[in-house]
Design a protein around this nucleic acid. Sequence first.
DNA 1: CTTGAAGCTATAGTTGCTACAAGGTTTACA
DNA 2: TGTAAACCTTGTAGCAACTATAGCTTCAAG
Lengths: 152, 152
Amino acid sequence: MSMMGQSISIGELARRADCKPETVRYYERIGLLRDATRTGGGQRRYGDDAVRRLTFIRHARDFGFSVESVRELLAMSDQPDMPCQEVDAIATHHLKKVESRLQRLSALREELQRMVTQCAGGKVGSCRIIEVISDHQLCITEKSHGGAHDLG
Amino acid sequence: MSMMGQSISIGELARRADCKPETVRYYERIGLLRDATRTGGGQRRYGDDAVRRLTFIRHARDFGFSVESVRELLAMSDQPDMPCQEVDAIATHHLKKVESRLQRLSALREELQRMVTQCAGGKVGSCRIIEVISDHQLCITEKSHGGAHDLG
DNA sequence: CTTGAAGCTATAGTTGCTACAAGGTTTACA
DNA sequence: TGTAAACCTTGTAGCAACTATAGCTTCAAG
């Protein structure tokens, strides 16, 4: 594919995958990226494969997949002959989490909208926003307390 | 209000506000809750005011307000004569963040749905899920990379 | 060959809790 | 009154997923 072999610096790699060098080093440390080849002076140099891999990681993270899920997905994609049931399982599982998060978030949006429109611009003592947060009769949104915040 | 003064233990307080004692101590440490009165043996005892305050905090957190925002809201609600423009500003700002997060999340849901339905159940090598994450032509969702994840 | 940007490692900080460990206190019951 | 369970105390370390800093070295352009 590439005529250039290993010629991409960490900064360039980061730029191409839209992240920072620190993040790249972090991913290397936790084993998402393989150790890079080094120049005589000890600087990392990458090839196009690393760009693709890092881009995959960033996209998956951007989708809300946890680092551990990304690790699994990478392990699977490293073995193209595997059946993709597991990939499907991870994605489906993730979809469910996203859906419930979405529900909570849109209930939240409605509450906030209600708050904001009800704020009459008076004194804090009679501010509906404060009241609404205090009362929270809007636990209408079913049992919502307690960690639905993780997209794993 | 209360006939009982300061008689609520930390565990009881936590139970009433649907959180854990550790969280209560944490809030005390970072200054969201005032130092509690203590028994002779050094245990914390609270009154109804603390229940209200903690409930407010938990609800606001549950709404996605950051601890710093909650701190501001509390400071304001401690001064009922203040005009509530700032309260409104915080809530409005928060609403905007929630809305953009919501947009991103629902785009994500659609992508995941697409992924899952396109997974033909074959080998990983031809798995659409892996491909979709890699290609991410779905950056349709406008400029989405880079920290739209914070609900501050 | 100089200079300035970019890279290196190691370590600590971030946010918002949560989970220990190793004890001390309270309370309920016999 | 004794004692045991349940609760509380502090301090510290851990979690995710980075981000930032310090103090140094290397690389690339002019």
